[in-house]
């Protein structure tokens, strides 16, 4: 490294804390919205990927675990994984799953569905998570969103950890939906589509 560490070099602590908090009280999952809105706002207003480049705590966590702790094989990612077809396809898939989660939240808000105290890992495995929920002052729908959003965050972290081990530490960055989306926004904004 050719520079002294800045405050944002320690954001991996925030990412790790976020994941841990989800085990104690699922409502902390709402904080994860910051990881959605900040990169989008930076891309839309600033026209750059400063979030990926500097502030992404998850990326820093993968660098730390895969790099410094040596938990990565440091192999190249497969060619298909870095193709635009896969990156955009994964973005669309992620969006569809995200809106499905929002729909389930809506159903709880509308009273058409009961609160499900589960975290869905890899969009498939429903893990019981009732210990992290002790009621809310608000509508149960807010808790449903928290369970859903934490599922998204945990799933993407697990996927990132798998590709970190198999390939390079920050392989997740290659197909990260937020990274793909912000790059697309920057391309559009700067007329390079």
């Amino acid at each position: 490294m050719n520079r002294t560490k800045k405050w944002y070099d320690y954001l991996w602590i925030a990412s790790l804390t976020y994941l841990i908090l989800g085990f104690f009280n699922i409502l902390f999952a709402w904080l994860g919205l910051l990881c959605f809105f900040i990169p989008l706002l930076i891309a839309i207003i600033g026209g750059n990927k400063a979030y990926c480049n500097r502030y992404c705590g998850r990326g820093q966590l993968f660098t730390l675990l895969g790099g410094r702790f040596g938990l990565s094989r440091r192999r190249d990612v497969p060619r298909w994984m870095k193709s635009r077809a896969f990156r955009y396809g994964f973005l669309v898939f992620f969006f569809v799953m995200f809106f499905l989660m929002l729909w389930n939240t809506y159903l709880v808000f509308a009273g058409a569905q009961d609160l499900r105290q589960v975290v869905t890992l890899l969009w498939t495995f429903k893990l019981p998570w009732h210990w992290a929920y002790r009621g809310t002052l608000f509508h149960p729908g807010t808790a449903q969103f928290a369970f859903g959003f934490y599922s998204v965050m945990l799933t993407s972290t697990v996927l990132g950890l798998i590709t970190m081990v198999l390939f390079k530490p920050r392989s997740w960055c290659v197909y990260c939906p937020m990274g793909t989306m912000t790059q697309l926004i920057c391309r559009t904004r700067n007329g390079k589509v």
């Binding site: 490294m1 750059n48 990927k49 400063a50 990926c52 480049n53 793909t180 920057c186 390079k192």
Partner: peptide
Amino acid sequence: VACGCCVKVCPLSAIQVVKGI
């Protein structure tokens, strides 16, 4: 993918991510 991993490790600041692209 403009992730900026290269920028962080360059000892001479010889690589930059331009306009997020």
